[in-house]
């Protein structure tokens, strides 16, 4: 039995996909780690003083600086002769795609010895479901509302995995909490590599998405099965693998589960389907 390193009693909402994610991530990386956490749901639900859901060394500093804090931890370890302890960042999409983007790029460019795990639930959930640059096209959030003039987020999702990979870091990969064996496999692979490693982990937020808590994991499988989310791998900037879901399900199956998309018209859904289909050109 693998020891749980992210334990019960945390204050994540019922059905929280990121809680399941952290259990998976921590079981994969083991005890010889230092977790560096960005402000966000992950930190708020897991570390209200004097309790902690983390059984490994853990530090939270600020929202936007987690890659640089991790660089400092990693450099201090190596400088003091510790060449084994893994430094693992855990940060949400807001911290990663938006406010910490500069610091992330700096850490990746320096190729610091850090595993950066971004749990992507596609909005600023902790502060009340505001849009981030990870929020998908048309999704409703409290800062991309559905009104008479504007209907959901006008922009699409920032391609953070490709941006991370473009730094030519040794390893960048995306996965989904609905595929725990894939999550574990990619983290184990990352553990065997030195330098900056980036894992983009799709994780569900029933509260923010208007999703039945019971279908939290189902949604993270469906996004892969519909081909909207690719589970891909990049090594030194080049794509080296992508999980092929077989005959892709219609995107509508994923979209209709969530009230954040309830205002989408058949034309909107058709446009998403078209874009997803185009994105697989040459990959299937």
């Amino acid at each position: 039995m693998v020891e749980e390193l992210f334990v019960s009693g945390h204050r994540a909402c019922a059905g929280c996909g990121i809680a399941t994610s952290f259990r998976e991530v921590m079981k994969a990386v083991g005890k010889d780690v230092i977790v560096v956490n960005a402000t966000g749901c992950s930190e708020i639900v897991s570390s209200p003083y004097p309790q902690s859901a983390w059984k490994v060394p853990y530090i939270h500093s600020l929202f936007e600086n987690v890659p640089a804090v991790a660089s400092g931890v990693s450099h201090a370890l190596r400088s003091m002769g510790n060449d084994h302890t893994q430094v693992v960042c855990i940060a949400g999409d807001g911290a990663t795609y938006d406010i910490g983007f500069g610091a992330l790029s700096g850490m990746l460019e320096r190729n610091d010895d850090v595993i950066y795990v971004c749990y992507d639930n596609e909005a600023y959930m902790n502060t009340g479901i505001q849009r981030s640059s990870a929020t998908p096209w048309k999704a409703a959030t409290t800062t991309s509302q559905v009104g008479s003039a504007v209907k959901g987020k006008p922009q699409g999702k920032k391609p953070i995995l490709e941006i991370a990979a473009a730094h030519k870091i040794p390893y960048a990969a995306s996965t989904s909490v609905g595929y725990p064996f894939d999550v574990a496999k990619k983290l184990k692979k990352a553990m065997g590599i030195k330098g900056a490693r980036f894992i983009l982990l799709f994780a569900s937020c029933p509260t923010g998405w208007g999703l039945d808590t019971a279908k939290s994991i189902q949604a993270t499988k469906l996004i892969v099965e519909t081909g909207i989310w690719k589970m891909a791998e990049y090594e030194n900037g080049k794509m080296t693998g992508v999980f092929k879901p077989g005959k892709r399900k219609p995107v509508e199956e994923y979209i209709k589960l969530q009230s954040r998309f309830k205002h989408l018209t058949p034309e909107d859904i058709a446009a998403i389907q078209k874009e997803v289909d185009a994105s697989w050109t040459g990959l299937e």
Binding site: V7, G9, H10, S46, P50, S52
Partner: peptide, 11 residues
């Protein structure tokens, strides 16, 4: 905080 102490918090 001490590690793993969230178990005190029954949810």
């Amino acid at each position: 905080s001490k590690p793993g102490t969230s178990v005190e918090n029954k949810t």
